[in-house]
Design a protein around this nucleic acid. Structure first.
Length: 599
RNA sequence: GCCGACGUAGCUCAAUUGGCAGAGCAAGCGCCUUGUAAGCGCUAGGUUAUGGGUUCAAGUCCCAUCGUCGGCUCCA
């Protein structure tokens, strides 16, 4: 696949501008606290920048105004950014009272890590950048002077806590997030995008469209789905299920609780026991709510008897409700819940089949993402990091990585690599899809596992008559139904394609006289397989149309005496477009065509 | 879990420096019989998240708990 040559963000003017804005902000904060500040790091990020500080008191959103004012003053001073190369000793002298900077200097000297955490060549030059009264340890690059920042094209957005170097064992620093652009118009556009994202927030739309609720009586992260919400879930799962069946997947069912011992053997217990709901103890047996399916599916494979290589690949799919005890602060609407339904699948195959099974899964994923109109996605090859949870078995890791890389290369998919993103048992190909607002979500995943099958004693008899350990591919298309629904709500702004919409057509009678016909027409549409409803309320048709349109029902069918006489309805789309009166059969065809087309 | 902010009717929001808890929408009832984004009237709706405290007086100030949000951490 042709690789586009895009300018690296680090080399763009925007990057310099945001980096400089971070320094200006740091100066403003130092001035606001009369120098009683320990500064940490402040890099540019996507769409903006941040800076971390240790301060004598907590910042509140009210402080942002004062910091911004300070920044504007510095900008107007047109202070040059002066670069200076220094020795380690000079650097340490300059930052004698700045413990975080000293730590960074130590890191630079030992050639370990630069401020954003990426690798740098051994012992690079140490550089300072100074503007006005503020000097920072910094690699640059920067603008020429602070006046190149437009005072009307940056804005501070929020304050937040952040651990020093992203490690929760370290001190919690205070982070100020800001955004900066070349022109005030670009800033305005960006703020508009933020506002648009807020309007599409699935938590807001879910409430407005009556799809789901959270209740303090049920518990945090445990969503309740209304009839409409369940209808959506059902459509989503039915669609994936049918597609999987067409691709030769089989569906299994493995329940909700499992003996804890199984997770000790699979390795999950060691890595995730804190993220499991507390154990249920019955005499000598300890159970856990099921937080993942792999051990259950693998156990089922084993219990089904001795397998021949002729049976492989076997593809076990399940829409399984899992329970994960996510930390309270990690919960977020439907995108991060404690009860989730995974469209999980485990493919048991021979090492030789990995490539073709990967290709099949890829094709399935592509088809499904297209149906959901996620046209823009890229693949992240998630590899193990240098330290942490990863199972120590270098040979198997290399085998798995090689298998995955080969499969990706053969498939022609464009991918990038990310260290430290693998599962503890193997590398992953994660599908990162962009929604209509350009935000990226991790949706589908294909993972290669050479570890668990052996741990759980899986085998098959090969052509050679000997027993071998199968490879398992873990695969999810939509990830979890809850999370994917949350993403879909935002992607479509609640206006689901007709095939997915909980109510596809709403019939609106103009007067009470039309109620009988309305119900009859609704019945015949239902019979044709459509999901319809009719509004028998006492309001006027205008109010009913407005209500239907706000609830984003694809087809609004208005019925008065004229339509009743002609045996049809006047068709109005949720866009407001009026298609005029049409006979009932034509309306059914129209809607069925939209369902088939996926629009 | 950590840092910070927030929590008022089903929903969206008001309520001077602490001084009688309100509106719109939704709901219920009634009138109107309607032609493509809100017809009119009436009624009901609250232990101001929960539990303590300060005060003559607390939605408002203090403490704790729960929950939500913005981040951090984590995401099998």
């Amino acid at each position: 696949m042709a690789k586009q040559t895009v300018e690296r963000y680090e080399e763009t003017e925007l990057y310099r501008l945001r980096h400089s804005a971070a320094h200006v902000m740091a100066q403003a904060v130092v001035q606001l606290f009369a120098g009683d500040v320990r500064v940490a790091i402040g890099p540019p990020i996507e769409d903006g920048f941040y800076y971390d500080f240790e301060l004598p008191r907590s910042l509140t959103p009210d402080d942002l105004q004062a910091i911004e004012t300070g920044m504007r003053r510095i900008v107007l001073g047109k202070h040059p950014f002066v670069r200076r190369e220094v020795t380690a000793a000079e650097a340490r002298a300059e930052f004698g009272a700045q413990p975080y900077k000293l730590e960074l200097i130590d890191g630079l000297v030992s050639g370990a890590k630069a401020e954003a955490g990426e690798r740098v060549p051994a012992a690079p030059a140490i550089t300072f950048y100074t503007q006005d009264t503020f000097t920072d340890l910094c690699r640059g690059p920067h603008l020429e002077h602070t006046g190149q920042l437009n005072a009307q094209s940056f804005k501070l957005l929020s304050v937040a806590g952040a651990y020093w170097r992203g490690d929760e064992k370290n001190a919690m620093l205070q982070r100020v997030y800001g955004t900066a652009w070349r022109t005030p118009q670009e800033l305005k556009d960006y703020l508009w995008r933020l506002e648009e994202a807020r309007k599409r927030d699935h938590r807001k739309l879910g409430k407005e469209l009556g799809l789901f609720h959270f209740s303090e009586d049920i518990g945090p992260g445990l969503p309740l789905f209304t009839p409409k919400g369940e209808l959506l879930r059902h459509q989503m799962e039915t669609y994936v299920r049918e597609t999987q069946t067409r691709y030769g997947y089989q569906h299994v069912w493995t329940g909700h609780i499992v003996k804890e011992d199984l997770y000790k053997r699979s390795g999950h217990y060691e890595n995730y026991k804190d993220a499991m709901f507390p154990p249920m103890v019955d005499d000598n047996i300890t159970f856990r709510l099921k937080p993942m399916n792999c051990p259950s599916h693998m156990t089922l494979y084993r219990e089904m008897g001795l397998h021949s290589y002729r049976e492989l690949p076997m593809r076990f799919a399940e829409f399984a409700t899992l329970y994960r005890y996510e930390k309270s602060g990690e919960l977020s609407g439907l995108t991060r819940v404690r009860s989730l339904t995974q469209d999980d699948c485990h493919i048991f195959c021979t090492p030789e089949q990995v490539g073709s099974e990967f290709a099949l899964a890829l094709q399935l994923i592509t088809e499904i993402l297209n149906r959901y109109r996620f046209a823009d996605y890229r693949v992240r090859l998630s590899l193990r990091g240098t330290a942490g949870k990863y199972v120590q078995d270098p040979e198997k890791w290399e085998q798995a990585e090689a298998a995955l890389r080969t499969a990706l290369d053969v498939s022609g998919v464009d991918y990038y690599e990310a260290e430290g993103e693998a599962a503890f048992y193997g590398p992953k190909a994660d599908f990162m899809a962009r929604d209509v607002l350009g935000r990226e979500w991790q949706l589908s995943t294909i993972q290669v596992d050479f570890i668990q099958p052996a741990r759980l004693g899986l085998g098959y008899i090969g052509e050679d008559g000997r027993e071998h350990v199968p490879v398992v591919l873990h695969r999810a298309v939509t990830g979890s139904t809850e999370r994917f629904l949350g993403v879909l709500i935002e992607h479509f702004a609640g206006a689901f394609p007709t095939w997915l919409a909980p109510v596809q057509a709403l019939l609106v009678p103009i007067t009470d006289r039309n109620h009988g016909y309305c119900q009859k027409l609704a019945a015949s549409l239902s019979e044709a397989g459509l999901r319809v409803d009719w509004d028998g309320g006492v309001e006027r048709m205008n109010a009913k149309i407005r209500k239907a349109q706000l609830s984003k029902i694809p087809y609004i069918l208005v019925i008065g005496d004229r339509e009743e006489e002609q045996g049809g309805a006047a068709v109005r789309l949720r866009s407001g477009e009026d298609l005029g009166a049409k006979p009932a059969l034509e309306i059914i065809d129209l809607i069925l065509a939209a369902v088939a087309a996926g629009t």
